[in-house]
Design a binder for these strands. Structure first.
Lengths: 161, 161
DNA sequence: GTCGATATCGCAACAGGTTGCATCTGCGGT
DNA sequence: ACCGCAGATGCAACCTGTTGCGATATCGAC
């Protein structure tokens, strides 16, 4: 069997949300490259949050020749496509989230370093977002949000110095 | 006039909040050094927000021998003292705020890149903080907060894509 | 199947911060 | 006035990202 017509790179069987990416890119005049295929494969297997460094690391385990700048640039493109979202963790480092599931904000406790998710439709979130919209006309980008503070447990322990 | 007894370094006339810092440090077993004096002088003249890089820059203009790591370490110490606070801007970079005035959160518009301050006692902020406390027992650290989103003007312009 | 425009890549340098370690020094004790 | 020790400094290497640029390769057109 000759390696005929079929394109040099192809993505075997990523889940549905990912399958359409090559075409979405081409429709925008962008390109589907082996490096992008690698990153998309990594993302399709990631659940929840991943930092930029972790993604670079995982790409390297598939293709050791992976270059960081390529990964970060591709992440920008994928965010434009609406496939992923990024936010900044409590320490300012980047965190990426896979869409469309898992749109959420984060609570980060500076005492115990624990973190919790806050879904976009959590009544508490809705209340807060509505308050800001009503009061300042500002529409908060919830998934980009990380709230730093002190959690209930640590507060109860009186560790909220 | 001989350069007698008087300590080699002294801080001429910083404002009140700053004057007590040397003693606050010593009371904790920490030290008052020329490098710290430089940084405190810079901070005492800063209003509102400053990034870490800016502070390093300004310290260098007073003492060209300033080393970044020393500045950042001193900033940590001063934050422990409660003299300053840091948060992370929309791009994740550090921003420092001088206390006790100006305790506030920030709104950052991702469309026009504008930013606004939100005081701690703003009714909108109070509502939001209360909601999270009531709903999750979590006490938000407001001054550490930067809300990314779309401002009223840009929303009106329909640029909230 | 080939060609050309241009998107993307790889690389190297840079920027903002952080960290480990050897050396130095503020400052409390005597 | 001097000592000693723990806290600070300076330095160098490292980490996470970003940017400019020349070389390469994708992909639509013919």
């Amino acid at each position: 069997m000759r390696a005929t017509g079929s394109p040099a790179q192809w993505t075997p069987d990523l889940g549905r949300p990912w399958a359409g990416i090559p075409d979405q890119l081409r429709a925008r005049g962008l390109r589907w490259t082996p490096q992008r295929r690698t990153l998309v494969e990594v993302l399709s297997q990631a659940d929840g949050h991943v930092t930029g460094a972790e993604l670079v690391e995982r790409c390297r385990s598939i293709d050791p020749a992976t270059i960081p700048s390529t990964v970060y640039r591709t992440l920008d493109v994928l965010e434009d496509l609406g496939v992923i979202r990024h936010s900044h963790g409590a320490d300012g480092r980047e965190e990426f989230h896979v869409l469309p599931a898992a749109e959420h904000a984060h609570l980060y406790c500076r005492v115990c370093s624990g973190s919790w998710e806050l879904t976009t439709d959590d009544p508490v979130v809705v209340t807060a977002v509505d308050a800001v919209r009503a009061g300042h006309g500002f529409e908060i980008d919830v998934p980009h949000l990380t709230l730093t503070g002190v959690c209930a447990t640590c507060r109860a322990a009186g560790a909220d110095a």
